[in-house]
């Protein structure tokens, strides 16, 4: 079992080396004529005003939170799917209850308008 992850490890090493090699090759093959104007931040030809790292809307944070909760739910569901053939009907009802509680959460979000993207 571990040796299979060995393949993943070697593949990940190769998957890092390929883009690094390509970028390094491009760096040396391409011309190098640095220019202060060229290296400026691109903003449709206008000089940048103010800081890039402006404050963002809280909506993004909310989406992240909802995603986290559903992610955890999914992780609990997958082992149940693997064990599904051996489960009794009542165990399946327990799993269904788990999902139903989270559907309630989704409808709560919906009612409160957290899913609107204004």
């Amino acid at each position: 079992m571990l040796s299979q992850w060995g393949f993943v490890l070697i593949l990940s090493a190769i998957a890092v080396i390929i883009p690094v090699a390509a970028i390094v090759l491009g760096h040396f093959l391409g011309p190098r004529r640095p220019d202060p104007v060229k290296n400026e931040t691109y903003e449709s030809g206008v000089e940048t005003i103010g800081d890039t790292w402006v404050q963002f809307r809280a909506q993004y944070y909310l989406i992240g939170l909802i995603f986290l909760i559903f992610d955890v739910e999914v992780i609990f569901l997958f082992p149940i799917a693997v064990a599904y053939q051996n489960l009794s009907f009542f165990s399946v009802i327990a799993a269904v209850t788990f999902v139903v509680i989270l559907i309630l959460g989704l409808f709560l979000e919906w009612r409160k308008g957290a899913l609107e993207w204004s």
Binding site: A58, L65, L104, L106, L108, A114
Partner: peptide, 15 residues
């Protein structure tokens, strides 16, 4: 617990 967290998320992050 996840449901409560979801409800809390709305209260915290809503504009």
């Amino acid at each position: 617990l996840l449901l409560v967290a979801l409800a809390g998320a709305i209260m915290l992050a809503r504009d």
